[in-house]
Design a binder for these strands. Structure first.
Lengths: 175, 175
DNA sequence: CGAGGCATGTAATACGTTACATGATTTC
DNA sequence: GAAATCATGTAACGTATTACATGCCTCG
């Protein structure tokens, strides 16, 4: 139920075809993975059937026709609702990144809220991993590789979150 | 087709019940996500039907019975094949982490190979993100949040990969 | 002249979650 | 006394991948 809203968010920035979205997502592959046409086209069709987007066929002489999708007013309302929906405590990284990619359609306040929620999550994981590594009696390096990885990544993410929260306008400073 | 092998790998370290696996995965939730019972139990059943694991029912007086799964010789062979299967160029982070978690059942050589492949992948992404951020003419902070995040995380991961590759025994030093 | 990009779409298949069903025990 | 943990499992549902179908254009 997330991908629909993400696509809607992309279309709210500018009208695009399915192929355009695929190309855009391909470049962001590393961050959120890129969906197949078999999931993208049906998603667009559903959005269309529900009246959240409209379509305009662009006929081209040399290239295949393109179907350009635009968000409707009703779609805007649904999107707005999603933008302000409170983050779940166990939200996935992918969900967080979708909102980050669509940062410019979120208000600063909701964006900050999502980042704070994420920081809380990562902080919890960081503590758990530290505990795990400290409690480990055995000194088998290979056994703890994944946990070491997790800890390094958690620390990096927390640094980024704090930096970014400080840089974001309209936010009070933090330690 | 990955999860089956991961479960098989866990069982190769020690016999466990489905519930044990669930608990273990719950603790690694942040790294690889935790599957539902609705996916775990059918997976175990399939492994059993294919003769890759055997089961022993442990009757308890106060607690519910437990079904303890152990890997078979045939399972070991299938697992070995998976351990040495060359990494795909576009392997997911999750796949990489599954191997990292099961590092102790991999040979150093195959482990190093997976880490090198991952390093190549992340290096490519790092370059792409740097290019993207440098080419960005607009100075809209919110527009590039996700890319900044990606770059920070890529750098952190590369540092970890290099550190760890150096620390791993039986590997030649690198710059 | 072949590979890959442009551009859309469907069908078979596999995968995974959610919710349901059951029921005792332990912890707050 | 309610909620969580232990412990297994199934059924309905939703979602995603893979492969197929079509066909022209461009670049090496």
């Amino acid at each position: 139920m997330n991908f629909r809203h993400f696509v809607l968010g992309l279309l709210s920035r500018q009208p695009m075809s399915g192929y355009d979205i695929k190309r855009l997502l391909k470049n962001l592959n590393w961050l959120i993975g890129n969906p197949s046409f078999g999931s993208l086209y049906p998603t667009l069709r559903k959005l269309l059937n529900e009246g959240l987007v409209t379509v305009q066929t662009q006929s081209n002489e040399t290239r295949p026709n393109r179907k350009i999708y635009s968000i409707t007013e009703q779609g805007q309302r649904v999107l707005e609702e999603w933008n302000n929906r409170p983050a779940k405590t166990d939200a996935s990284l992918k969900t967080f990144l979708m909102r980050l990619i669509l940062a410019d359609i979120h208000s600063i306040d909701s964006l900050v809220a999502y980042m704070e929620k994420r920081r809380a999550q990562v902080t919890r994981q960081q503590a758990a991993l530290e505990k795990f590594l400290n409690d480990g009696t055995e000194q088998d390096t290979k056994q703890y590789l994944a946990h070491g990885y997790g800890l390094v990544m958690a620390n990096a993410e927390l640094n980024w979150l704090d930096d970014t929260l400080n840089r974001l306008p309209g936010t009070s400073e933090r330690a």
